[in-house]
Amino acid sequence: MPIIEFTGVRKSYGDLAVLNGIDLSVTEGEVVVLLGPSGSGKSTLLRCINALEDVSGGTIVVNGRDPHDRATNLNELRSGVGFVFQHFNLYPHMTVAQNIMLAPVRVKKLPKDAARRRAMALLERVGIPEKADSLPTQLSGGQQQRVAIARALAMDPAIMLFDEPTSALDPEMIQEVLEVMVDLAGSGMTMVVVTHEMGFARKVADRVVFMDAGRVVESAAPDDFFASPSTERAQEFLRRVTHI
């Protein structure tokens, strides 16, 4: 039973077709890494999953609901999907704990003290409980991204989406964020990850999906994909990323 299912999904901005009929399904507990050249539509696909973008055609089912059906309560659907952004997008006017508590308090109506305990447990999990009362700007990039992951986890999502979570980080901070993600994958979380970290894809992914020009070109187990990509575009892509 897939937890995310795309059927013939299309999306365009004016004349520019960004998604050209995407078919993709992700089963519960699966970790999928999305690869592809810049502009191939990876972010757009990810953002369609929790309706940050709407689509021009096709159907999407997430957690049994269609994010683009008018009858769907989007806020409810989004609560079940965590999203981690490339640039963290922490709220600068709130402390770390407040960042994590906002959605549980406002959406789930969790009492403040319960939300605070939950926030502390999540900070513990990402390894920075001592930063609970700091402002985001007082944290390093790696710490900020770990807070962002904790924030996304605060709503107990069934699915976690990551859009290049380590691309904005200094090299020495990438590892600490990847470790949290590896840990999360190990706990059985369903994850869709856009990343250029090939090591992570190789080790953690159950499946690699390669996109080009708004299409899913290849979908394979990481070992197969990295050993012998079956399409010309994927071979070229791999040559380029592994030689830089």
Partner: peptide, 26 residues
């Protein structure tokens, strides 16, 4: 930045709730 509204929406806050709690104070 647009990402602020998006982050709040991604957490499940409605448009007005996100505006009030996240965008307007900034």
């Amino acid at each position: 930045p647009r990402g602020q509204l998006e982050a709040a929406r991604a957490g499940g806050l409605g448009y007005w709730a996100a505006m009030r709690a996240v965008v307007l104070p900034q």
